[in-house]
Design a protein around this nucleic acid. Structure first.
Length: 151
DNA sequence: GCCAACGTTGGC
DNA sequence: GCCAACGTTGGC
């Protein structure tokens, strides 16, 4: 069992949206590293920190879990769509997505607060210039964050 | 296979 | 809205 942090812009899809939907396909990822995490490493049951990015108060907003193994991202085939990829074919898909299920909303653990916690100093999300939308989380970091959030 | 140019990300 | 950092593209 592994742990992950997944970014989403709340104006696009927030923790409240996930609470409403219960489960969501994590489509639209167009970065190879993030794709590889989903395709090669994420397993059903893995823990997910749901992170709000590009918003007024960025930070961890809730918890989710991987609920379905990776499969080809349907949006790569949608001609004219935002996520269309002309080089992808059904026989040889390029992009994949897992699905994640809602666990719970938490108080916001802001990036500012995270930066002040030495236990989290090595998190990818805090590294300068980090842009990866999916990053692995250490079991120790996961435990610490859950304790911090009183979960 | 190099690398400059370009587009995107995302905190501030 | 700014801009640093990064990934991708494409000419050579």
């Amino acid at each position: 069992m592994r742990y992950w942090l997944m970014k989403s812009e709340p104006s696009e899809y927030s923790i409240d949206d996930l609470a409403r939907d219960s489960q969501v396909a994590w489509f639209g990822v167009r970065n190879y590293q993030a794709r590889n995490f989903m395709r090669d490493q994420m397993k059903v049951g893995d823990g997910v920190l749901f992170y709000h990015s590009s918003c007024e108060e960025p930070g961890v907003a809730g918890l989710a879990a991987v609920s379905k193994l990776a499969y080809p991202d349907e949006t790569q085939f949608e001609v004219g769509g935002k996520y269309f990829d002309a080089k992808a074919t059904r026989e040889n898909p390029r992009w994949f997505n897992v699905e994640v299920a809602f666990k719970r909303k938490t108080r916001l653990l802001s990036i500012a607060e995270m930066r002040e916690l030495p236990q989290l100093a090595n998190m990818r999300i805090l590294a300068k210039g980090n842009r990866l939308s999916i990053t692995p989380v250490d079991p120790d970091e996961w435990k610490f964050i859950l304790a911090k959030l009183g979960v």
